[in-house]
Design a protein around this nucleic acid. Structure first.
Lengths: 174, 174
DNA sequence: CATCAGTTTCAATTATTTCCGAAAATTGAG
DNA sequence: CTCAATTTTCGGAAATAATTGAAACTGATG
């Protein structure tokens, strides 16, 4: 009976890892990175680079690069076991924290650069007197205003505590 | 003086198109698609496939595929000029509408599939009696709850009118 | 200081995505 | 129906991104 339970778990877990990995693609996150995250999010104990390599059948270089990236994002912590030299990795498991971390990162990669572009274009087109020039400038201005708004919203959301978000949501969904 | 104004505009516009296109990459939208969108968003008049091809120096196949995709997203409208056989394309210029369209599409591509995955995994791991099984199931359940929440939020936001969103924002940013 | 476990880097390979260009299909006018 | 204009499809070329595998590096230990 124990064996059967383990099998079921192993199967469900593998499916989760595979699917979450495939989804990473859609999210602009590479497959390996998403898989490692899924693997560690559902691991009972921290895992070493070698364990990750074996579990996902990936090369050392790949495992290494993506583990580091996940640490940089703040989705993994490095854990050192006493008396052991090698590093172990442990995932953030709190769903809300995962969300805020990802939100921050995406804002940095998607919103901030957009804001710069749009600001520069609004600036460069200031005061062009033709009708087309005015229309272009106005379009850039509106875009700038919106992206700035999105930027601030993203900051706020990323800073929110779980409880507050739920409260917000209640209002919004009510 | 008119020439100079036109030059400045042309330059600013080209920069916008190039940069917005480059940014598309980060957004998981292909470069051509983002460029076409930028081009038409800043065009005084609707443009034909051939005009788009020429303006961006891209092939017919590429122009065609991406114009169609943008129409499918709802970011472009097809316009038929009377007495003309060929189709012209016109961009949605209202920033808030652009945002809600993109939000809807991203929800469809990013959130909905995630919800399915997580639901199935939560279901498949229901009732596994080992400690690991319980932990896994609980993790999936939390993920499911969160993704469902995100899904509903996205729906709400996508449906919001501009005014209401601003009002919300005031509360949130206040 | 030689060795060993482990980490990091990187050139080469492989996989994926995007794009072209030309051919095929469709459409509307005459 | 025929023809020319226009749209659509599609196989493969080109560009981009991910991954490997092996070598270089690091620093702790005897």
């Amino acid at each position: 009976m124990k064996v059967k339970a383990d099998d079921r778990l192993e199967q469900a877990r593998e499916e989760f890892i595979a699917q979450w990995g495939a989804m990473g693609t859609q999210w602009g996150i590479n497959r390996t990175m998403a898989q490692i995250h899924a693997l560690l999010m559902t691991a009972a104990e921290p895992m070493s680079t070698d364990e990750v390599m074996e579990a996902l059948e990936i090369s050392r270089g790949n495992a290494h690069a993506n583990l580091k990236e996940l640490v940089a994002w703040g989705l993994l912590r490095v854990v050192v076991k006493k008396g052991e030299r090698r590093e172990y990795f442990e995932a953030e498991k709190d769903v809300w924290r995962i969300f805020t971390v990802v939100a921050r990162e995406r804002k940095r990669r998607e919103i901030d650069p957009a804001l710069e572009v749009v600001r520069r274009c609004a600036e460069e087109s200031r005061g062009i007197a033709t009708p087309e020039g005015r229309a272009f400038h106005e379009q850039m201005r509106q875009l700038e205003e919106f992206v700035e708004f999105a930027s601030r919203m993203a900051d706020r959301v990323a800073m929110m505590k779980h409880g507050f978000a739920i409260q917000m949501a209640a209002k919004l969904l009510g």
